[in-house]
Nucleic acid binder design. Structure first.
Lengths: 133, 133
DNA sequence: ATGGGGCTTCCAGTCACCGGAAGGTCAAGG
DNA sequence: CCTTGACCTTCCGGTGACTGGAAGCCCCAT
């Protein structure tokens, strides 16, 4: 299977697939002309990584998850722990963004948004909130 | 004012301040010994950038906001628009993360998380969801 | 044989910094 | 006067996870 077919079937760009080879996720054989030749197992692995990435797992998380996936005797608790850590990280990001959102939307609400130059948004950003030593 | 004082008063790391000089946000004078010498206006500007960054504005957004801040005759509508675009981007990120969160937490709930090897998390990641051409 | 797409490698760029090395400067203490 | 330690400087490289582009094969259909 050529890289283009794998890209279509996995949903990953060819650039990303080459990158995943570079960082050791896959080692496709080569044809005589130098083209990569993927088998179904590699396609499968790439699709796995793609799904995990879309759920917010880092590439290094994926490396761990792949190892766990291959190790059929590992306890599910181990996998669950990795997933829970990821969930925590996602929750923290959501909380950060929501805090931003609150402040920013307050600012936007207070701004008339007309032809006049007075703007509470800039005024607030301009406030020096230093901790004078 | 030395860079260390500015760092303490603005809350930005010295590395970041030097970086902001490099990309043209500020142009502090230099003392004979080569040290940067900041004035209050520069401190103010850095604090402004720091606050905007913490609200999710990109560095390029900050460049625009600074220009708008300096242009006392611009309409507040212009600023509001930039802020609203940022708010939209924040909302999109929150939505993405929440979608991830839902899927991942379902998966985690379904996983026993014990000594047994069966794990719905990995099983789901392993599902090939390709669009076979 | 020619054209167009697909494949290869390699280099550089993204974004917003951060870490560290090598070295100059300054104020205080012995 | 010397040392110590906290500053400051520049420069180089790295981060994460790709992405873009150039230069150049390769393959197939016309």
């Amino acid at each position: 299977m050529n890289i283009g077919d794998v890209a279509r079937r996995s949903g990953l760009p060819t650039k990303t697939i080459r990158y995943y080879e570079e960082i050791g996720f896959i080692r496709p054989k080569r044809l005589d002309n130098g083209y990569r030749d993927f088998d179904e197992a590699e396609l499968h692995k790439l699709a796995f990584i793609g799904r995990a990435r879309s759920l917010g797992f880092s590439v290094e998380d994926c490396r761990i998850l792949l190892e766990l996936y291959d190790d059929k005797s590992r306890a599910s608790a181990v996998v669950k722990k990795v997933a829970e850590q990821n969930l925590k990280a996602i929750d923290a990001k959501i909380a950060d963004l929501q805090a931003m959102r609150v402040t920013l939307s307050h600012l936007i609400d207070k701004c008339a948004g007309d032809h006049r130059p007075d703007c509470p948004i800039l005024e607030n950003l301009g406030k020096i909130t230093t901790k004078d030593a």
